[in-house]
């Protein structure tokens, strides 16, 4: 079955890069521009993986992760968050909120696919 992934990022570049890369790797990708946007999609769809940025307007990444985990349907959906090297404190915060793993920006496409493959098969 085709695996579908939700990418949540307020940066169009990141959204496009991630979806381009993953679509090339035969995943189905949907995009959301922030947490609120993502939650609306999550109310309607199931995903095998959610990738989210931590810094977004409206509902930020941590808030989104908590909200996802609070939903029955997405309790166990793997969530990756995008982070940068400088942000170890945020990493722990995101983990505590229920994130599965992270991707360090900047990343190369192969790295992204490798991390995604860690979480969905």
């Amino acid at each position: 079955m085709e695996k579908s992934i939700l990418i949540v990022d307020d940066s169009e570049t990141i959204r496009e890069t991630v979806s381009f890369t993953l679509e090339n790797a035969q995943y189905k990708v949907q995009k959301a521009v922030d947490g609120e946007d993502a939650l609306q999609l999550l109310d309607k769809h199931q995903y095998q993986l959610i990738i989210t940025d931590l810094h977004m307007p409206r509902l930020d990444g941590i808030g989104l992760i908590k909200a996802i985990r609070a939903r029955e349907a997405h309790q166990f959906t793997p969530i990756l968050f995008l982070t940068t090297e400088s942000q170890t404190s945020r990493k722990d915060e995101a983990r505590a909120a229920g994130a599965t793993g992270w991707i360090v920006k900047p990343f190369v496409p192969e790295k992204l696919v490798a991390v995604v493959q860690k979480l969905i098969r």
Partner: peptide, 15 residues
Amino acid sequence: AFRVMHTLKGSSGMF
């Protein structure tokens, strides 16, 4: 400002 820089940094490295 922090959020904007964060985003900028992330995508700049990639390109």
